[in-house]
Write a protein that binds this DNA or RNA. Sequence first.
DNA 1: GCATGATCATGC
DNA 2: GCATGATCATGC
Length: 457
Amino acid sequence: MFTQVYDNKNPKDIERHGKQLVNHCLEEYLIYNQKDKIINNLSNKGEIGQLVETIIFNYKLNSIKEPDFKDAGVELKVTPLKKLKNGTLSIKERLVLTLINFHDIISEKWETNTLIPKLRCILLMFYLHEDKPKLKLIFKLVSLWHPSCNDMKIIEKDWNYIINKIKEGKAHELSEADTNYLGACPKGKNKDDVVSQPFSNIKAMRRAFSLKTSYMRSVYQELSNSKSNLINISDKGNFEDIIKYTFSPYLKKSVEFLMQDNDIHINRNVKHFNKELINDFIKLKLGGNIEELEEFKKANIKLKTIVLNKNGTPKESMSFKQIQYKEIINEKWEDFEINKIHEDGRFLWVIFKINKSFKKQSDVSLSDIILDKVMFWNMPYHDLQYEYKRLWEDTKYKISIGDYSHFMGIKDNYVGHIRPKARNSHDLMETPQGTMEKKKCFWINASYIAEQIKKAS
DNA sequence: GCATGATCATGC
DNA sequence: GCATGATCATGC
């Protein structure tokens, strides 16, 4: 699911937009956004960087003085990776920054040079170089990046070394081997493509400033290992704060607004419409599914969406995974799904409210569905270890003796009950007794959820 | 109106 | 092809 719109004044949003290409190629983006008709007009002769600029950022980019995304101060760099024999990905070539004009550069000082603005904030887009059309090349990593302070000191030394060599009339002797991170790489058509230099009559090869392959290799390593690559945790604090920060502009506002503001489109007929909506929203804002994001994976966050009636109670109870009849009879309480979530994780409840009477939610106008509240939740210890465990034990016991018609109903247990969950009434599962039974699952009672929400506010 | 049974688009 | 994360439908 690719979006087309991004904020070209906001580096994070430019990054977010670029990240959509990770594990995808330009052709997929074109087809998804129904621009496939222009595929034929885009020849593969263009540089891949230019294709990214045109197709993804829809932006007329320049090549010289100013950063590509001028208002955000972001420079775009599209650069290839290669696959090593052992299968790992590695930098294929140096990152070329800007041509060196031997005559102009000698009057520049480090403090005011034209290179630094290009290094302040770079959107690096790494793709895997393969022998196939450019539109089919797969992008592997997209990230905002800039050299660290320590790296900048070395780059400064390198820069001065290169400038001094030109001032000594030795531009023709420049070599990438001279320097550490910043190199003066050949940029001519061939060895005979030479230009004049200010302090010698000897012509020198055209050269450009570049970040050397070895340096880029360490940058790539650092970025691909970085667990906080997707979210800048230090910016906003812990994941609770990040979630609150992410949702806060949309609290007490309609789903219609949230969708329009983020250009999200979802089939209204999907029963888990709200879940899809929040999934897409989080993906957009934080760069990945909530289950996939490193910081959230670590915290074992389980997302659930809830819809409240106008009286503030949920219309529906909450379902979980199907009961595996042949497995539950040997299951330990410690391994039970809902208990496990509580052990080292928590729920993220995204709560909607509909202030009108309705029968089917899909008939309610999106402007009447309000994002009411976002909260983290854990089942209180007693409720889990006694009441819900009682439900689990009862269910496990009944399955072990082959009784599939007397599971606990909503009135038998304060917290939860057992109810069908299947494709239809003919969707059966084999039991330990060898018979076939309708598929069912554990639920949490709507009335209990209502209580928990009230308790939290 | 509530409890329970039945169902469905989506994604892996 | 099937589980998932829910909502929809029905009957008392």
